[in-house]
């Protein structure tokens, strides 16, 4: 089987995969990083979103071999020294999750949009969540949490 190496959550990792192994399965099954979820088989739900070289991608729509040499960040890599990332903390504070299945993807998408877009408002947040489905919350508190986190992170940068 082909070998693959990449950096995941700051650590160099290697593994053997089939050519058809998706990145999400490499993360979950080889590396046991089960925080990243699989919610569909049609590339539509976004539960599997991770960052590839700093950009949000669907890890179910990318071969592990395509990520050779890349920097990958998963939901498990966000908290630092036991402290939740501001977006994770905001989801907790604003009840941005119910069953939590969509949450890893929602949060990775949120961190990415906050990085790309300086002034988020409700409309933009909803557009940016186009590729992330939630069956529980009705999105209201997800949008609220992302907005609050974006303001907090902007404050922290200023």
């Amino acid at each position: 089987m082909p070998g693959v190496s990449m950096t995941v959550n700051g650590k160099a990792v290697t593994g053997e995969v089939e050519a058809r192994t998706l990145l999400v399965h490499f993360l979950r099954e080889n590396l046991r990083l089960t925080g990243t979820h699989v919610g569909c088989d049609t590339s539509q739900c976004g539960a599997c979103v991770v960052h590839l070289n700093g950009k949000a991608v669907k890890s179910c729509t990318l071969l592990a071999l395509q990520a050779e040499g890349s920097q990958v960040t998963t939901i498990k890599g966000l908290a630092k020294n036991g402290h939740l990332h501001p977006v994770q903390a905001a989801f907790k504070e604003h009840h941005g999750l119910q069953c939590g299945f969509c949450t890893p993807g929602m949060i990775m998408t949120a961190v990415d949009m906050i990085r790309r877009i300086p002034d988020l408002d409700e409309t933009i947040i909803r557009q940016q969540l186009e590729g992330n489905l939630c069956r529980c919350t009705g999105y209201q508190n997800i949008v609220k949490a992302i907005h609050a986190a974006s303001l907090e992170m902007k404050g922290a940068r200023a």
Binding site: S43, G46, V49, L52, K55, A56, V57, K58, T61, L62, T109, D112, M113, R116, Q128, E130, G131, N132
Partner: peptide, 9 residues
Amino acid sequence: IGDPAVRHL
């Protein structure tokens, strides 16, 4: 086109 993750790849 699609969503942000699709547009990144």
